[in-house]
Simulated scan of single mutants.
Amino acid sequence: MKRRRLRPDEEELWRKVVSNTERLHPEKPLKPQDFVTTPQMKPRKKATFEAIPKSLTIKPQAPSTSAYLSPTIAEQVGGQPVQMDRKAFDQLKRGKLRPEGKLDLHGMTLERAHLALTRFILNAQSGGKRLVLIVTGKGKQRDDGGPIPVRFGVLRHQVPQWLSMPPLAPAVLQVTQAHVRHGGGGAYYVYLRKLR
């Protein structure tokens, strides 16, 4: 790295700094070449800008107001690949298929709800049922105003995870949010595999 010479105004500023400070090693004499210098910068070429065609301009988007970084439950469940027959799945999404069984988890604790869900799904599959409805409810809004956002609808968030883990995962073919006539965002359709 090449050293450059200090400009007169920089030398004057340096001398003021030196006069007001106490040296760490007073036994060593101070020399002008000991001054801190910066490397010489090469001048840059001027940048030229051309007009951007309107077709290439990016339109500003509204900032996201969601406090959660993870996707919503509807996005998680809706983002799963379709495992069942496409025609039946479309009818299911439109609420045209009638569930053969229903489990309502309102008011249950997580432990009781997990046991009830496991028992219900395994019994429904062994009984030859294909489509069941699990009602979780949407949950109560309980934000205490603290700095950390609180999720509401604990069962609504937990049920899809339980259905994707053993012992229920081998029994479940498809999970999707229920149609409005069957509970909408507070319920799930669970399409079960046939027993072999």
Rank of each mutant, 00 (worst) to 15 (best):
Y68N: 07
G107Q: 05
P99N: 06
G137N: 04
I148C: 03
R142W: 07
K140V: 12
H25C: 10
N20I: 11
F89L: 03
G185F: 09
G184R: 08
I52P: 02
P29S: 08
T118S: 06
H179Y: 08
M165A: 15
H25N: 14
T57Y: 02
P160T: 06
D34F: 13
L6G: 05
Y189Q: 00
R86G: 05
K42F: 10
Y189F: 09
V150A: 10
A88E: 08
V190A: 02
E100Q: 15
Q33T: 08
A74M: 11
H25W: 15
P32G: 03
G78V: 06
R156K: 07
R119F: 05
R196H: 10
D34Q: 15
A169P: 00
Y68F: 15
T118C: 03
I73V: 15
Q33E: 14
S64Q: 02
G145L: 05
F49T: 09
D143F: 12
K45V: 11
T136N: 02
H25A: 14
N123S: 12
Y191E: 03
P81E: 04
G145K: 09
R112L: 10
P81C: 02
A51Y: 11
L192H: 01
H157N: 15
S55A: 15
G78Q: 02
T57P: 01
L173E: 15
L105D: 00
K87I: 13
P149K: 08
G79E: 04
G101I: 07
M84Y: 02
Q80R: 14
K87L: 13
R86N: 09
D85T: 10
Y188C: 00
E27G: 04
R44T: 08
E22G: 07
G137A: 02
M84N: 03
K59D: 09
I73K: 07
Y191F: 15
M1A: 14
D9V: 12
G139I: 09
V18I: 13
V180H: 12
L133Q: 04
Q80Y: 06
H106S: 07
R4V: 15
T65L: 04
V172L: 00
V77P: 03
A62Q: 03
D144E: 10
Q125P: 00
S126N: 12
L195C: 08
M1T: 14
E111H: 06
